[in-house]
């Protein structure tokens, strides 16, 4: 018996005779942060959806622990104008919470004052914080964050990552985090998987402090919440995403 929250074994998704992603294996345990990175269209969201069982893999198996609370922060949500929806209604979307719980969750992400605001009046950054607040109000065992820092400026990004660290400390859930930033990940990340249609490389990130080279490059502007990920590829991709055999070692 293992104790993984989610386990993908050699998973792939086939659409219109094309593999969106193939041969992906990953495991997330309690209290662990796994970061998925890769360029656009590399199958990061597809992989996340397999780990949530929204998409069934056409190949391989996805094993999801039974009876756990799951929270999902999708990459994009657009709220139709015809739908009157306040922040509090959005937090209550899947499960009704006590007002005190909602206040707590909104405080953690720093938007408590917007509790009765219509969601369409929120800025991009505020909406991202609302998505996060809704996800943590459920106190999930497993949390999937699909590009939670998109559309957020650099200080906002650091603040959101700090929030994620607080969440991990507070509710000790397993997190699958997706980022389009290929070189910088959250410093608390336990494991990084670089995707491009398949797993290109994976491993633990390097902390900034340990790498004087990077310090020299970026100075002290890099916040300690971030860390660098050192890629270790043994192949190159052609522009269409296929593997360049001529350069393979």
């Amino acid at each position: 018996m293992n104790n993984y929250l989610v386990e993908l074994n050699n998973c792939g998704v086939l659409r219109n005779h094309k593999w969106l992603v193939r041969g992906v294996s990953l495991k997330v345990s309690q209290g662990e942060i796994v970061t998925l990175i890769g360029p656009n269209g590399s199958g990061k969201s597809t992989t996340a959806k397999m780990s949530l069982d929204i998409l069934k893999p056409d190949e391989g198996t996805n094993i999801i622990k039974k009876g756990m609370r799951i929270s999902y922060v999708p990459q994009k949500i657009s709220i139709d104008w015809s739908l009157p929806l306040r922040a509090i209604d959005f937090v209550n979307l899947v499960k009704k919470h006590k007002t005190s719980e909602i206040n707590d969750a909104l405080s953690i992400t720093g938007i408590k004052h917007l509790i009765y605001e219509d969601v369409r009046n929120l800025s991009g950054g505020e909406f991202q914080r609302l998505l996060m607040a809704r996800a943590i109000a459920k106190e999930p065992h497993f949390l999937v964050l699909d590009e939670p820092v998109q559309g957020v400026d650099y200080p906002g990004e650091i603040a959101l990552y700090k929030t994620i660290q607080e969440i991990v400390k507070k509710i000790n859930c397993g997190i699958l985090l997706i980022s389009h930033n290929l070189h910088v990940v959250m410093s608390q990340t336990d494991y990084v998987i670089c995707l491009n249609g398949h797993v290109c490389c994976s491993g633990a990130p390097n902390t900034v402090i340990k790498e004087p080279e990077y310090l020299k490059l970026f100075g002290k502007n890099i916040d300690p919440t971030l860390a660098f990920y050192q890629h270790d590829h043994d192949h190159e991709h052609l522009p269409d995403g296929s593997i360049d055999d001529s350069k393979k070692e």
Binding site: L52, I54, R69, Y72, P74, L83, L93, V94
Partner: peptide, 11 residues
């Protein structure tokens, strides 16, 4: 209605 995938993902 708000988000199909979110509703599916969360059980």
């Amino acid at each position: 209605t708000v988000n199909l995938e979110l509703a599916k993902a969360e059980g």
